[in-house]
Design a protein around this nucleic acid. Structure first.
Lengths: 121, 121
DNA sequence: CTAAGTGTATTAAAATAGTGATACAATGAA
DNA sequence: TTCATTGTATCACTATTTTAATACACTTAG
């Protein structure tokens, strides 16, 4: 797993950890049943306090992305079908968010289409 | 001006005020020379402490979006040409951000193009 | 000029979020 | 069992954010 933590980001560190792991799950890098690094190991790797990592793991578990057991460790818990559905849903959600901002800025659908043409080549 | 403040948002209130006004400027709703509401009026309208609004105004001025004078009030200060440039730059920045997320999720350019086709009609 | 309204500045207090230190309980390998 | 490792829980500390109460100097309408 390749996590990047930006201490200067306005986004809290523990949320960056959540996002990074969630992204790893959604993109297929982590699959159902795969073990997550132990809280202390990951904390040492990222030079964070174990509590910060624990907070992220707790949130992931609350969202149904993982399962932790004392003594045993934490494992990814995502029904195989759900991963792809979530992945597509997130892409669509992100695009709609972008579209909303574009509209707020006063751009038309055609303006957006034109930008996309120009950029994504 | 139509400002929406979400007290439950993780984004600090004063930053929401900054964003909202900045967006109003970039979208053309507020133009060079237009007066901003007085700090006390806007605070009363949004049910915030005047200091919170003042903090936002201070930041806007520091970024060069406005100019405040004691006794006279605050006015939008954006060179006419710059507004459109900023507006386009922000749209492009937002799109690149979206594109980056899509790639992180493992989607190809074609996947993205397909989604855009489907949604933006 | 007077007075109301303006932005600015200072200081303090409270609440919340984030991080850190430590102890506890469960698991599993030796 | 023994012991190292695991997730969990609790408490405290720090920084940030927000609110609050004033005070000050400037502008402008009357």
């Amino acid at each position: 797993m390749n996590l990047m933590i930006d201490a200067k980001s306005p986004l809290p560190v523990y949320q960056q950890v959540i996002q990074a792991i969630k992204l790893e799950i959604l993109s297929g890098g982590l699959r159902d049943g795969d073990p997550l690094p132990s809280i202390r190991d990951l904390a040492k790797l990222l030079k964070l306090n174990p509590n910060t990592v624990a907070k992220a793991y707790y949130a992931l578990e609350a969202e149904g992305f993982s399962e932790g057991r004392s003594g045993s460790g934490s494992r990814v818990r995502v029904p195989p079908g759900r991963q792809d559905a979530l992945r597509r849903a997130m892409l669509e959600s992100e695009f709609r968010s972008f579209l909303g901002k574009a509209v707020s800025l006063g751009f038309s659908r055609d303006d957006v289409r034109q930008l996309i043409e120009r950029i994504s080549q």
